[in-house]
């Protein structure tokens, strides 16, 4: 749509590299299949027929961190899990993003005690926080769309 007018005789479209790369990154994000607790069940609901997250190019959950570029931290992170989570994050290839899904991943939620990390942002950089305990699937989808918007605005000089 709209591209036809821009097609010259040579069939070439000119666009800014930033826009093309960001467009490519947003529409085929592969989240890591990584459920921790209650939120993972809502994440599964978001994947299932009623909410169908594949409408946003997100249907391909990769169990391997090597193949994924988005980590949805769905649930509380315990002190025992924290090093594992960090290692998984480091195993993901760049560029990579993190969504903290739910109150526990964002801030520790109701569990303010010895066992739970008070927010996953103590371990990995977080791009989008989704509130709710657990968030509805719509809320997760909203978080994903917000992340897409953020990625679309990324600048070439920040890519490093």
């Amino acid at each position: 749509m709209g591209v036809e007018q821009k097609l010259g005789e040579m069939g070439v479209v000119t666009a800014r590299l930033e826009d093309v790369v960001n467009w490519g990154r947003t529409n085929a994000m592969w989240p890591m299949l990584f459920g921790l607790a209650c939120c993972a069940i809502e994440m599964m609901s978001a994947q299932a027929a009623n909410y169908d997250m594949s409408r946003f190019g997100m249907e391909l959950m990769r169990p391997s961190p090597r193949q994924s570029d988005l980590m949805i931290v769905a649930g509380r992170v315990s002190r025992k899990m924290a090093p594992v989570l960090r290692r998984l994050y480091e195993q993901m290839p760049d560029p990579k993003w993190v969504i903290a899904m739910g109150d526990c991943a964002s801030s520790g939620g109701v569990f303010n005690n010895y066992a739970v990390v008070q927010g996953v942002d103590e371990i990995v950089p977080v791009d989008v926080y989704v509130s709710g305990c657990p968030p509805r699937p719509e809320a997760l989808i909203h978080g994903v769309v917000t992340l897409h918007e953020k990625v679309r605005k990324e600048k070439i000089k920040d890519w490093a």
Binding site: S107, G108, N112, N113, Y114, A115, Q118
Partner: peptide
Amino acid sequence: DYPLGYEEP
């Protein structure tokens, strides 16, 4: 005698 480990918000 083990503290709860409460972190101030």
